[in-house]
Amino acid sequence: MQIFVKTLTGKTITSEVEPSDTIENVKAKIQDKEGIPPDQQRLIFAGKQLEDGRTLSDYNIQKESTLHLVLR
Rank of each mutant, 00 (worst) to 15 (best):
T14F: 09
N60F: 07
K11V: 09
T9S: 13
Q49W: 14
T12Y: 10
T12R: 08
D39I: 10
I30H: 01
M1D: 03
K6E: 07
G53V: 07
V17A: 06
A46S: 09
N60S: 09
V17G: 02
E24Y: 15
L71V: 12
I23N: 01
S20H: 12
K33M: 13
K33L: 14
S57Y: 10
G10H: 05
Q49E: 15
L50A: 00
E16L: 13
G47P: 00
E64A: 10
K11L: 10
T66L: 10
K6C: 12
K6G: 03
Q2I: 15
K6Q: 10
E18R: 14
P38G: 09
V70A: 08
L43A: 01
Q40G: 05
K48T: 11
L56R: 00
L71A: 08
Q2K: 14
S20N: 12
R72N: 11
Q40D: 09
G47C: 07
G53P: 06
K48W: 07
S57N: 09
E34V: 15
I30T: 02
I61T: 01
S57A: 14
P37N: 07
T7P: 04
D52R: 04
K11T: 08
T66N: 04
K11Y: 13
Q31D: 05
T9Y: 14
L69H: 01
K48Y: 09
K27D: 00
T22G: 03
E24L: 14
I44P: 00
K27Q: 03
T22I: 04
M1N: 04
D39A: 12
S65I: 04
A46K: 14
I61W: 01
D21T: 10
K29A: 07
I23A: 02
S65L: 03
L67G: 00
P38E: 08
V26Q: 01
E34Y: 14
I30W: 02
I36F: 11
R54W: 10
K11F: 10
P38F: 14
N25P: 02
E64I: 02
D32T: 11
L50Q: 00
G10C: 07
D21V: 03
E16I: 14
V17Y: 06
T12P: 02
Q31E: 09
H68E: 10
Q2S: 10
E24Q: 12
Q49P: 11
S15K: 05
Q62G: 13
E16Q: 12
Q2M: 14
L71H: 07
S20T: 12
M1H: 04
S65D: 14
P37V: 05
F45Q: 01
D32M: 13
F45C: 02
K33H: 10
V5T: 03
N60I: 03
L8G: 10
T7Y: 14
L8H: 13
N25I: 14
E34L: 15
Q40H: 11
D32F: 12
N25Q: 14
Q41I: 13
V5R: 00
P19G: 07
L67K: 00
R54V: 06
Q31A: 14
T14S: 10
E18C: 11
G35R: 06
Q2C: 10
I61H: 01
A46I: 06
R42A: 10
F4P: 01
N25E: 12
K48R: 11
I44M: 13
D32H: 11
R42G: 07
L8V: 13
E34F: 15
P38Y: 13
R42Q: 12
V17S: 03
T66C: 05
S57G: 10
K63W: 08
T14R: 10
D39P: 07
R42N: 11
P37K: 07
N25A: 13
M1C: 04
Q40W: 11
D52F: 04
K27C: 02
L56C: 01
E51T: 06
Q49M: 13
I30E: 00
K48F: 10
L67I: 13
V5F: 09
E51D: 09
S20F: 11
